[in-house]
Amino acid sequence: MTQASSWTAFSTVMRRDLMVVMRRRSDVLNPLLFILMVVSLFPLAVGPGPDILGRIATGVIWVAALLSALLGSERLFRDDFLDGTLEQLTLSPHPLSLLAAAKIVVHWLLSGLPLVILAPICALLLKLPSEAWLTLLATLVAGTPILSAITAIGAALTVSLGRGGALLSLLLLPLFIPLLIFASGAVEAALVGTAAWPQVLLLTGLSLLTLLLAPFAVAAAIRVSVN
């Protein structure tokens, strides 16, 4: 197989997955609504004072990001596993890791990107001081690809198990801890007026590293799951 046709396969997987999702519009909208609701529950729970909300805003938005990534994990491989397309992808002449990378991109488009778009609204709702907005956005852009990549590993590992939900969170949440720490650290730095770029840079580095390695782990996990 030539290089060019492998890229055709990459884009075909992406196109197919996006087409399937577009036939079920609620799958696109529900994560957005989910994020908005999670975010708007917090002021109700801890009180609407800007001092409290501003302090917890980053944490809340990032936890919402983790949850929405987990929520979208089902969609990654479950249907493909059940209808046999995953089997066919495994047997395709193209590198499976490349096709897995396409899956990761689709997951990000449907759960990471909405969050980036919604971030200003969330920041507004949670009264995050405006000087930290840009940093929050930067951490989301740099960090959400990590979420999608690692979620894909977990989803591929648990796809054959049927009842993956709770197990998946158990596997993945510890791996998200560095992400949570650096992202909220960056925003905190912006809030107190110190430089946030070291953390953002660190997140970007981690993100690139994860995106480089995760497709191989996902491919290995798929091979175990179709076994």
């Binding site: 690692i150 590993i153 590992l157 782990a217 996990a221």
Partner: peptide, 10 residues
């Protein structure tokens, strides 16, 4: 095998 992949990621 699955647990092994997770351990390596870990």
């Amino acid at each position: 095998k699955a647990a092994g992949i997770l351990a390596m990621v870990g």
